[in-house]
Design a protein around this nucleic acid. Structure first.
Lengths: 250, 250
DNA sequence: AAGCTCTTTTGACGTGAATCAAATTTAAAA
DNA sequence: TTTTAAATTTGATTCACGTCAAAAGAGCTT
């Protein structure tokens, strides 16, 4: 293991992390043979990021892919005048850059400290070509991201601020469950402005909406960054766009 | 050739269309062998749709994929109260359903009369598994759709009505060019309400914005459905979000 | 723990696009 | 062609959210 390109080279990642990182990708393909496993593990490089570090920028050649081990990243696109859309937040186990073709379609930036495993795309592509089973899994992942993106289009195109925030909370909760965490006190490590830019709102509107949902007893907010879901069904009805629901305003 | 499942079974498609349709998918993979070609062609079934016909609905099992031969389709998602987001418009040469995993993520509906080629997904998947070169092309297509979707997120999240309409016109124009048509008088076969639901606006706002762009000399509108791009650079600057541009309002 | 900065919340107000409504144009049917 | 219905445009008004501004709170540093 070597950490040449890590932002904190003095602090190597424990070997167990590398193993976990390898296992993550390897789990994509149960039939990957021993040689394939070794080859894949040899491609891994650990990377550490501090809060606000940019891993890669939109439009740069997509020469590397990553697997997030610890922390949280945000992906975003910018308009020339600074308007920003956070397309997604990533958590441990998520991949970055696999769904990009030649160039990264978003900028990736750390939300708090984060550690990742890095792969050279060229080497990975070679491996994928020989281990054809991997390609199907990549396709499935791209399809899942596509489906998520389309749901987000609906949110940005037609949902109210209240519906957007409700959707966000439930999405974050569902992701926490995927990672083996609890559904209800959801940790939201990103700032209000990141949430706002993810939902096509302003910081103020996000804050006001959270206050409103709290006042209505649908959620609770602890220490700013931890959200308690109090009325799951009502929140879900709101997020799904059931405007007629008795508990829903707007 | 057989048209059992066509909406107009009496009117068979000419054989040349089937050949073109097959060629479309085959061109994905230059190395597809003769047996593969024959097998693929045997999978093709022609389908005809009348205006407003629904090809498949969001959430239905994605058992079939399609290649649009003629006409225009719209893909959309609905909220329970009827709010609608048109995720995309499709034109001849475009595929439908290839990027969906188990279930269709959108409803597909004909904008005017349309003809398509249909494939059974199960048979196609078998073929893809044996002709592994196809998988890479499917992955590339999914990646391209993903990139487009992310641009649309930015549009829906942060662009003004004027910027959205400008983006729409240029996107439609670019697609026309891809199909070998002229860039400037762009045919837009869909209704105002479809454009509105694609851009997260209302019919009235789309109409007013088109009127405004026409008044400013940026575009011209003929017979409601044909748009002339008069000031490409200004329209592009507007669409890209250069708010500071001297010719741009809002 | 005091002082600083950054973030979040709350308040007052403005505005872009939605809504409501009606006129006009276009398309379809008789 | 005439009649009827549907789509589009235009106008008047409203409202949800954005903008501007300030206060309150959280996190650092010393």
């Amino acid at each position: 293991m070597n950490a040449l390109l890590s932002k904190t080279p003095s602090q190597k990642l424990p070997a167990s992390m590398c193993a976990a990182c390898g296992a993550q990708l390897l789990s994509m393909c149960a039939s990957l043979d021993r040689a394939g496993r070794d080859e894949l593990e040899a491609l891994l490089e650990p990377v550490s990021l501090a809060s606000g570090d940019v891993l890669f920028e939109e439009g740069a050649p997509a020469t590397r892919s990553f697997n997030l081990i610890e922390g949280c990243l945000k992906l975003y696109k910018l308009l020339p005048d600074g308007r920003r859309l956070v397309t997604d937040f990533l958590y441990p186990g998520d991949f970055l850059g696999l769904a990009d073709k030649d160039h990264y379609t978003c900028t990736a930036e750390a939300v708090g400290a984060a550690t990742l495993c890095r792969f050279e795309r060229s080497a990975l592509d070679d491996l994928v070509q020989r281990q054809s089973c991997l390609e199907g899994h990549l396709l499935d992942r791209a399809r899942a991201e596509l489906a998520d993106g389309r749901s987000q289009l609906l949110l940005l195109g037609h949902k109210t601020a209240r519906e957007r925030v409700a959707s966000f909370i439930l999405t974050q909760s569902a992701r926490a469950v995927q990672r083996g965490l609890s559904a209800s006190p959801v940790e939201t490590p990103m700032r209000r402005v990141d949430i706002a830019d993810h939902l096509g709102l302003t910081t103020e509107t996000v804050s006001r909406t959270l206050t409103g949902l709290t006042a209505d007893g649908m959620i609770g907010v602890e220490a700013g960054r931890r959200i308690i879901i109090r009325e799951t069904d009502q929140l879900a009805a709101l997020a799904a766009g059931h405007k007629f629901h008795k508990f829903i305003k707007n």
